[in-house]
Amino acid sequence: MSWNDSMIKQAKKIIKMYPQKRSAIGPLLHLAQSKDGYISDDSIAVISELVGITEVQVKSVSTFYSMYKQEPTGKYLLSVCKSISCEINNSKEIIDVVKDFTGLNNNETDENDLFTFEAVECIGACGGAPAMQINYETVEGLSSENTIKLCEWLKEEQPDVIIAEEMQDNFGGTKSFDWAIKDQSGTTGSVPGFQTFNTTKEKK
């Protein structure tokens, strides 16, 4: 097994949440992706052993969903949104800028394994369009100039940890829900409405 003890422990905890073991494949694949950045064949073998189905059945699930990466990505995965809200707010330009800067086409990784570029469907930041994600951390309200600056910063500084807030402060613009009516109770952060409908649960 190529997973360490703590991951196996985490996996077993996930499996316990489902009445049938094989129902846990989805979250387990996320766990695998969080480890390697993509779904490796080794991880698939581990998952298949944990849930008691064959490797190819796990592979079948993991290749069905495009957000499980089948290939290793570069250090920074640049996911620029191309869905409707961002499109209206000129995401095409952002995509071109990133393409020009990195020299990459969709789903390509550069030689130094630094950048992987992809144009993705909605990342849930319509309020702050156009938006993109670096390693799944969102930055909103981009302009072409700021996008170039962001890319240059990544290339030169090569930070080990990407933090959404930090990027937003340095390179972002209008943020989702900046313009929304303030939540009077003050209990919900930037996303009003979620907790009042009890759709999310407190982490324990």
Binding site: D41, I44, I53, T54, E55, V56, Q57, K59, S60, T63, F64, Y65, S66
Partner: peptide, 22 residues
Amino acid sequence: GDPLIEFIQRGNKTEVNTFPNE
């Protein structure tokens, strides 16, 4: 009861295949 072949990928890319080296 030995499902060693399955659909891989989705949509017009779907293919039947085995797991590599399996």
